[in-house]
Design a protein around this nucleic acid. Structure first.
Lengths: 111, 111
DNA sequence: ATCGTCAATCGACGATAGTCGATAAATGTG
DNA sequence: CACATTTATCGACTATCGTCGATTGACGAT
């Protein structure tokens, strides 16, 4: 149903780009893959010591990853537990999908 | 075979990130999807007039897309013809692959 | 050889992004 | 309440990126 013969509308392109931007940083990939391997939730502190980057930096990246719902947060006492969102990761658009305009924008925003 | 229990090695993470970076810009997504819809090669000039951004900008983006082999170039006379690399697009790693460390780095660098 | 066209490169500018250190806010503990 | 701990936010700095205009280089035509 997405049959633009010409240019992909700017708004759609920007939405796609924002998703890829979330994975366009080495530190973020390290964090998200770390959370994926241990399927258990991790606190920010654990991620900080494991990743070796500053605490504020980790917090910043987790915020970005949470915005695209790659990770989910759960507050527990004074600490925040982050875990991978398998749903969102698996429905992340493939390059082929984006290029061909297959997925409706908003797709990766799954629960 | 990629069984890091801890952190994904930085070099691998940076390689993954560089692939996603190629699609982390709205203009680049517009260009690549434009080339994908018309499966025929397009000259830089055509892309410029269709996309509405400056010639040097388009050239710059095409260079980035060519570096990750999303597009292929063929010089013909005074003009350069760009076309989509269906091979590379389809073997671009999914988010799940990257997150779980499935694809060997270097995978998207297919012919 | 000269000119015109097309694309790549260069230089500059503004905007964005990643990182850090310091501070603040929230929550648990004595 | 005072204190410690954990995370989020803020401010600053630097590096990178996207864009443009101008220039250069390559090629074809006259």
């Amino acid at each position: 149903m997405n049959e633009h013969k010409g240019l992909l509308p700017r708004a759609e392109a920007e939405e796609y780009a924002s998703w890829f931007k979330a994975l366009a940083d080495a530190t973020r990939i390290q964090i998200v893959s770390l959370l994926a391997r241990r399927r258990a939730p991790m606190s920010v502190g654990e991620i900080v010591t494991t990743s070796g980057v500053g605490q504020s930096t980790v917090s910043h990246h987790l915020k970005i990853l949470a915005e695209v719902r790659f990770v989910l947060v759960e507050k527990q006492g004074t600490s925040s537990l982050y875990r991978i969102n398998e749903n969102c990761v698996s429905c992340f658009p493939t390059a082929a999908d984006v290029v061909m305009g297959n997925p409706a924008p908003g797709a990766p925003t799954c629960e």
